[in-house]
Structures are given as structure tokens and as C-alpha cells.
């Protein structure tokens, strides 16, 4: 059976402040892929991720993400609940603690609160940092907190904009582990990164953007979803383990 297409963009145009940030993109991403989106500054990487998150709108062309039509408002709203975006911004409230931030976003995203503690421990935000105000954290610790919010959501489509930014080596390794873990459980990942050595190592395909278009849609060169044939209950156990 052919893998399911998760992202299907055809001549997609997206305009930001009257500038066509995406100027006719054709891109298909199938379930289980880890697609690295690379390109120079202003190539349209962030806009592409925002379009796939349902935050940016289509000004031309057509597109579906997770079977939601990007051309209409209501499907875009439904898509947002199924996709997870890690952006340049942290989405965190400086005045609240790590635990209060993650709990707030977990409740907003209707996440089971029992998943919070294992995720905080997995991201090394447990004992020492959970009670610290986010405004007092380092950039790397803030990034880990944003990642914790994303992991709690368990999105079907992970959209990561510079996920390694601000992290030390252990943090970058952790991001790569989380990506592989999510894909093993059936998620699809698109990431934009300037840390090409690291991102290329984790990606199964590299897509190159230039001037708001796809310059090279790449070739799928690896598959990390090789345990899909395992029984579902085993995969669930793996996923539930922090």
C-alpha cells in the first residue's frame, strides 16, 4: 500500500505583508518522513512551516495537510489541533514557572495531565527547574520547555523551525531522539534548520527552497519507520515511556 500523503501542496502561494513568501510551491510529504527544509534566509522556510500548521493562508494554488484543505478557514482550524509547531518564538509566559506553562498549554490543548511529569523528566526539566519562572531560564532551557509543550501535544505532524537553536550538544541529541521517537510512532516531521550536518543526519529527505519555490525536492534516502511492522501495543509502550 502506498504511504499516505500528509502534505500535498500544488503551486501554493502565500503572501506575507504583500510579499509572496511562497511563490508557487509544489511539495508532497508522506507519512513517516523526516523532511529537512533548507535554503537561504528569506527562501520561505518559516512560511512553509506556518502554512502547513494552518497559520498562514493560501493566496493561490491549492494544498491539503493531514487531509485538511488549506483554502478554507474551518479545515485550517481543525488542522492546527493536529499539527505542532516549534517556532523561533517560545510561546511561553515569562511570569509563570516551567510547570505552570506546560500545564497551561497542556490543558489548552486538552492533553491528559498525567503525561506532563514524564515529559518534564524526559526533557530534564523535572526536579530542579519545574518551579523556576521561565523568565529566569537560559535560552536552551526555554527551548526545552517549548519542546515539552510540543511533546505533550503528541501532534501527528511536527513542524520544527530551527529546533536545535540555542541548545547544547546534549539538547540537540535529545531533539534528534524525540524526532526519531515521534516518527517511529507514526508522526511526520518537517524541520527547517541551518545546522545542516545534524539536521541532514536525522532527515530522510532534504528539500531545498529558493526564492519561495522548491529548487530541489530531494530523494528519500533513509527510513526510520522500520519498526512499523511491530504490534501496535509494543509501539504504544515505547511511546508512553518517557
Amino acid at each position: 500500500m502506498a504511504p499516505r500523503v500528509v502534505v500535498d501542496l500544488r503551486s501554493a502561494i502565500s503572501v506575507i505583508n504583500q510579499f509572496p513568501a511562497l511563490a508557487g510551491i509544489d511539495l508532497q510529504v508522506t507519512e513517516g518522513e523526516i523532511v529537512l527544509v533548507q535554503g537561504p534566509n528569506g527562501a520561505g522556510k518559516t512560511t512553509l512551516l506556518r502554512l502547513c500548521a494552518g497559520l498562514a493562508t493560501l493566496a493561490g494554488g491549492s494544498g491539503t495537510v493531514l487531509d485538511h484543505d488549506l483554502d478554507h478557514a474551518e479545515p485550517r482550524r481543525r488542522l492546527r489541533r493536529e499539527a505542532g509547531l516549534l517556532a523561533h518564538e517560545t510561546y511561553l509566559y515569562d511570569e509563570l514557572t516551567v510547570e505552570e506553562n506546560v500545564s497551561f498549554w497542556a490543558e489548552a490543548n486538552r492533553v491528559d495531565p498525567t503525561t506532563i511529569d514524564p515529559v518534564l523528566d524526559r526533557l530534564e526539566l523535572g526536579e530542579r527547574l519545574r518551579g523556576v519562572r521561565v523568565g529566569d531560564l537560559s535560552a536552551g532551557q526555554r527551548r526545552r520547555t517549548s519542546l515539552a509543550v510540543l511533546v505533550c501535544r503528541r501532534p501527528r505532524l511536527w513542524l520544527l523551525d530551527e529546533p536545535h537553536g540555542g541548545l547544547d550538544r546534549a539538547g540537540r541529541d535529545l531533539v534528534d531522539d524525540l524526532i526519531r521517537h515521534a516518527v517511529r510512532f507514526g508522526a511526520t516531521v518537517m524541520l527547517a534548520s541551518h545546522d545542516l550536518d545534524r539536521a541532514t543526519a536525522v532527515a530522510t529527505r532534504v528539500v531545498t527552497l529558493a526564492g519561495g519555490r522548491v529548487a530541489d525536492s530531494g530523494v528519500r534516502h533513509a527510513d526510520v519507520t522500520d519498526d512499523r511492522e511491530r504490534p501496535l501495543d509494543e509501539r504504544v509502550e515505547d511511546h508512553d515511556a518517557p
Partner: peptide
């Protein structure tokens, strides 16, 4: 100001509240 700082309006939209 609390919500518009650091992209939190986007996060609220993503949460589907």
C-alpha cells in the same frame, strides 16, 4: 501585551481554544 509577545497568539490559535 502578554499575549502578543513571543508568538503566544499563534499558540492560542494552534491550541484551538
Amino acid at each position: 501585551a502578554i499575549e502578543s509577545a513571543d508568538g503566544k497568539l499563534d499558540a492560542l490559535r494552534m491550541a484551538g481554544l
